[in-house]
Nucleic acid binder design. Structure first.
Lengths: 110, 110
DNA sequence: GATTCATTCAACCATATGGTTGAATGAATT
DNA sequence: AATTCATTCAACCATATGGTTGAATGAATC
């Protein structure tokens, strides 16, 4: 999946990870989300945009306020990549194992 | 862990993820790693530096060539964060569940 | 010792990122 | 209708990022 880039870049920022964890508690308005942060509302708004583009957050406009809710699905992509990595890793270990087995068996040949 | 930032930023780049997967096959020299890429050797060298700083790769200088090997440990940090996220998520689901249980039980009160 | 080979360092470039402030939009309140 | 409130848009700024090219380093080879 191509989106993995966006998802990883999004969660690479600590403020955005904090926002995500905060949002697991439940949806919140932009101002609420921004409250604990030592940065402008605008900065938080930008972070939310990044999370939204990555699909990690969904925005529901309710009149003048925006309700932001976390969306867990894109994190699956990260898990999937980690699993792919581990799959390759264990396959490689298999190969190494076989390599050593062959060494044992064929010791006298070479 | 603070390094999580560096690890996530490192794997957010697709070339670097490719390098990592390549290195699971086994250690390689810089030129070997660079070979499949359509970018300068220098660019790859920089990517390796980023991976090295993030701890995802280890460099062993062997004379004039550098043997680069993958180091899986830092990816644990990513897994840990995902687990933390999921923990919070399920705790929140618990809360929601209890909330609805209370609604059921106390329906007549409110 | 001169040359070649593997790699990094240094400088540069364009674009992205994370932040700011001030103005604009648009809904709610008076 | 005027004002206030929630949010984004726009412009700007400093720094980071991903790439380039050319020079420097330092080991191997002739």
């Amino acid at each position: 999946m191509d989106n993995l880039n966006a998802v990883l870049a999004a969660i690479a920022d600590p403020s955005r990870r904090e926002i995500i964890l905060r949002l697991v508690e439940g949806p919140a308005r932009v101002t609420e989300i921004a409250e604990p942060f030592d940065m402008s509302l605008n900065a938080v708004s930008k972070h939310l945009k990044v999370l939204e583009v990555a699909g990690l957050v969904h925005r529901e406009k309710q009149g003048r306020e925006h309700l932001i809710a976390v969306r867990p699905e894109p994190l699956r992509l990260v898990k999937t990549w980690l699993h792919e990595y581990e799959k390759f890793w264990s396959e490689h270990l298999d190969k190494v194992e076989k390599h050593f087995k062959n060494k044992k068996k064929g010791r006298k040949k070479l």
